[in-house]
Design a protein around this nucleic acid. Structure first.
Lengths: 217, 217
DNA sequence: ATCGGAATAAGGGAAAACCCTTGCATTAAA
DNA sequence: TTTAATGCAAGGGTTTTCCCTTATTCCGAT
């Protein structure tokens, strides 16, 4: 299986496209058989000839890469489409995956990565730039420093105890029994918590705690 | 910069360790200069000689890889530690990152990946197995199909209306005013919701809704 | 046409939550 | 040592929620 990989480039920036053609041509395993400046143009040219692998930009005029990918795969399910974008956020990643792309390489990656991505998808695997994946994971991590917030709001240890129990869905009575204090005391702590978090009832207090990662759910 | 990379292996399964030594030795750029069966043993041997790169298992007797990594880097900050584990979940990933590991390769990966990881960390980069990262991202995606669940629980449209308002932190009274119905009706819907979701109060109902993605927060 | 079931709406009374206030102990400042 | 501040605990009274029951409408089935 050492035949030449036929590649299509869909990218609106002419200079970038030319650079891409140049660096990929250096590899004798690749042959660029098609170029398009937007999704619509790509779909038209796709009727004439089908590449093995398509390098697809996302942001393009007339028709973007997300639509183009979905439509192209509808007609030619065997196509391997690698997203080539500068966006490394989850939204773009998700949309391209949903459209059927089997790879995602960032524009600021080296040629090596792109080359590897092409080889991987030809083999039937998927390839996603490490940088992209790590970026997504990092962004998904808890943004606010919860311990920090607890200090800022001046929530005491005992109040945190009560808060944890509230966020388990326990009633004041149940919490009182668990902590060996009266219901009234639980209510007292809860009132303080609602004051400090500027919430008005049980639910909004729990929502605040979840949103600000004061508790785990 | 073409000198031989000195490698340490910390892994409690002897067979796996031997296999690892064998496949890595095939590469003349690598030299295995140390092996240890657990974190404690590794730290002791580390006093005698320091590898460039350490392949570190997580689950080990006496001292696990998380502790060992943190302690080793405390004393030898220049060490490059690559986690070598079968666990591809976020928890293990996070703990090893926090301990200071600069790479993570799954045990069921090929030698190529491990080799690349070693080269990358030697260059000062980090390396994380694509499989691991994708697994983390996939697991973080909303698991249950919420629309499905709504149908399963036979939650009516009106009940969903009420649920949405409850999950905004509104009181029954406020919801009643918004929906132009009496408080009693709101309570009725809420009771039905609690029955269907098997929850016992406002908070547990909200928690259930969040966990099962019935609502957005 | 009528019957049964489900969704919607609402009432009464009991239980729980909420709000305000007080007492007490510990700690820090005057 | 007194004073002030803070966290914890709890009571009284009002409001809200919870639970059980009932009425009405709509709709599909007999």
């Amino acid at each position: 299986m050492n035949k030449v990989v036929k590649i299509g480039i869909v990218e609106d920036h002419v200079l970038f496209r030319e650079g891409l053609r140049y660096v990929l041509s250096a590899n004798h395993g690749f042959e660029i058989i098609m170029e398009a400046g937007n999704g619509r143009e790509f779909l038209e040219k796709l009727e004439l000839q089908q590449p093995d692998v398509v390098l697809m930009d996302i942001d393009m005029p007339v028709m973007n890469g997300i639509e183009a990918t979905a439509l192209a795969l509808q007609k030619y399910p065997g196509l391997k489409i690698i997203t080539l974008s500068m966006h490394s956020d989850y939204g773009h990643y998700k949309k391209m995956i949903d459209s059927g792309a089997c790879g995602f390489v960032l524009k600021n990656s080296g040629v090596n990565q792109l080359t590897e991505a092409i080889f991987e998808v030809v083999k039937g695997n998927s390839y996603f730039s490490q940088e992209l994946l790590m970026n997504i994971i990092l962004k998904k991590e808890t943004p606010p420093a919860s311990a920090e917030l607890v200090r800022q709001l001046e929530i005491s240890d005992r109040e945190m105890d009560v808060l944890h129990h509230i966020c388990q869905g326990l009633s004041n009575k149940q919490i009182a029994e668990k902590l060996f204090i009266s219901i009234k005391t639980v209510e007292g702590h809860k009132s303080k918590l609602m004051l400090k978090t500027e919430t008005s009832n049980n639910v909004s207090l729990v929502l605040f705690s979840i949103k600000n990662q004061l508790i785990e759910i």
